[in-house]
Design a protein around this nucleic acid. Structure first.
Lengths: 373, 373
DNA sequence: TCCAAATGTGCACACGTGTTCAGATACCGG
DNA sequence: CCGGTATCTGAACACGTGTGCACATTTGGA
């Protein structure tokens, strides 16, 4: 009953505002019946939004003038423009970016595929990326979370006319890539070699990173190396491993032990246990910091090893916690700021020159020596 | 002159594109000239997208049929539907969700204001929220990062017809709230009392949380309490403080010391130093876990205090690191899963019943006793 | 005073989609 | 074979915006 009264009221403003979409009133006789099974109607339509037409009417100008008032490039009498903007503010009008995008303008929407967001490093990157995109007037449509980044989900998000798609984490089926290309949505890969080399990408020089780590430990006199990596099928992971192996080979050494886990603290802790139980190692290099911290925890608490005396430990990424006094983890910094800056730069270049050849930015990691080596 | 030439050329391909996307060749005679001052043209238009019309042409059906093929509610001959979907897949067509939303359908876009994303708890909540929204077929437009959530940014994002706006962190100017209401965009507040009580909100029972923490410490024989809080103007912060103060008062006690910091590890560490230097406390309650960990670090390393023997320490939130063996922080869990579930539920209810009265969900935190009390 | 140039404005179209409505086609009983 | 009905389909409109083009108005100079 209450709603009955309210809806015509709404419809009333509705009617006066526009020409005459008399829908609501025509529907009314039916409403009382449908009210009960309201849940049945699948999705109630979005309530009407204030439009440029409304502003025009309120300000006594043409709709065109309203449009021009909001676009600095178009000409409009300054006084009139001010008046329009004033009344727009009053009645709470915002130009509908979606309707505008039908004209061929950019949408400003950028898809961001963020992976499972489980690891602290991923979270830090996402935070920095979101902040940078916001500053660059690009609005990130974020896809992420454990098991949430399915092909289905990506296809759904591709229904929106995105200016670009940033892939950082998660893997992309080939049909997704193909769809993107057909839809003319440029892709920017970050963190892993782009599966198709004709897309922009930002990659870390993973080999150089772990090579440097091995060097540090060799100089420290370590000889019996272990490696604790992430999922073996990730290309970045393979590169990190390759850096370790090849540098060791250069010194006439080979890995004593070697294992893959899931890039998490707990996973690292468990895998480290299996790796260290034999006490055959004096150095352990980890594929990321979360696992390195897990390994550190394992060494200290589960096995009673002294770090770095009994065991040297090096991580990868340099997450915030690696700096914390409890850990002071020696690690290879995978610099977030430069990575994000590179992504945004590639994005802006791509927007400005859609046809330019793909660029690949290589980020050089730096060794951060702290207290675990 | 150059632009003069280019515009007809563009218009030309534009027309022919339907059948023949001959862009490059037609443009070619002009390109060499425009290439030089290409940066001058402000924003090149978004390249054309495959449309339903293209599919219709390719499949030899009407555009209407294509539309129907993608909407299960509309009727279409099954064989024809299949053929349409097939060719759509071939040429990589996806219905344009934005154009569709002009019809009044929901956009599926949800704004998420995530605050500065500095704290681990915020990141964890964001990750969980993004994942849940993805599963609920809602696509989050995330705004966050230090200094990135300005009123200007929020107004920008309001140009998109959002189905709803989720505010968790950051503060909202009153004019933003007003604009949202005028635009008919429902708001859902999480983590703090909604500034306007007629909006949906999910709040944690902060008072109950810190009350329970004080109880635990009182039972443990502590008497000289300190409190280390976050920014004093946050309502959630005030409630946590109030819980401490009032429970202490109930026991005939008062806070010995009391300080505000910025909710970060380092901030907590510094503030704890100032707070603990006098050694007048035997219990310290912190407004969140990050600061509690900082305080723990300070107690152990900077001051050489034994925790919990010299000092009991309790945090708030229960972030992942609180569980780590290095810390084993006793804390008040601010449950992420229930919070996010509540947000999504409120969102779905609001979508289904736009006119329903505002609901406020209270989340009850639970004390997690670990090793610092 | 008159004309050309400059300035300001509104009409009308386009964008890509969902949906209504009337018309076309197939089916079936008489 | 005919008429009625159920099934299927395409033309046309609406959604909210940007913009080219033509027209209206003002300005300046001779």
């Amino acid at each position: 009953m209450c709603t009955r009264v309210q809806i015509p009221a709404l419809g009333d403003t509705h009617v006066t505002v526009r020409g005459d979409p008399a829908h609501p009133t025509t529907d009314d006789p039916v409403r009382p019946m449908t009210d009960e099974n309201a849940p049945l109607q699948p999705t109630p339509r979005r309530p009407r939004r204030v439009t440029a037409q409304d502003v025009a009417q309120a300000a006594g100008v043409s709709r065109t003038a309203v449009s021009r008032a909001f676009n600095p490039d178009s000409y409009l009498d300054p006084a009139k423009r001010e008046r329009v903007l004033k009344t727009a503010l009053d009645i709470g009008y915002r130009p509908n970016a979606l309707a505008a995008s039908l004209q061929g303008t950019r949408t400003g929407l950028v898809g961001v595929i963020a992976g499972d967001l489980g690891s602290p490093y991923d979270s830090e990157v996402l935070a920095a990326l979101v902040a940078s995109l916001t500053r660059a007037d690009k609005w990130p449509l974020v896809l992420g979370g454990p098991d949430a980044v399915t092909d289905q989900a990506i296809l759904s998000v591709l229904r929106y006319p995105l200016d670009a798609l940033i892939i950082r984490g998660g893997s992309l089926g080939p049909e997704i890539t193909a769809t993107c290309e057909k839809l003319n949505i440029p892709m920017i890969f970050a963190g892993r070699i782009g599966s198709n080399p004709q897309a922009d990408s930002v990659v870390c020089d993973n080999r150089a990173g772990t090579t440097e780590a091995v060097d540090l430990l060799l100089n420290g006199g370590r000889r019996r190396f272990g490696y604790l990596g992430g999922p073996a099928n990730w290309s970045s992971e393979r590169e990190r491993l390759a850096g370790v192996v090849s540098r060791l080979a250069g010194a006439g050494l080979a890995l004593v032990a070697h294992r893959h886990a899931d890039y998490t603290f707990e996973g690292g802790r468990r895998a480290a246990r299996a790796l260290l139980d034999t006490r055959a190692l004096d150095a352990l290099i980890c594929g990321n910091d979360a696992m390195a911290l897990g390994a550190l925890c394992c060494a200290r608490h589960d096995l009673g090893l002294a770090v770095p005396d009994d065991l040297a430990l090096v991580g990868f990424d340099d997450i915030a916690m690696a700096r914390w006094p409890e850990y002071r983890l020696t690690t290879v910094r995978n610099p977030i700021e430069s990575t994000v800056a590179a992504i945004v730069r590639l994005l802006e270049m791509r927007m400005a020159h859609p046809q330019r050849p793909a660029e690949r930015v290589m980020i050089t990691p730096t060794l951060i020596a702290r207290a675990t080596h």
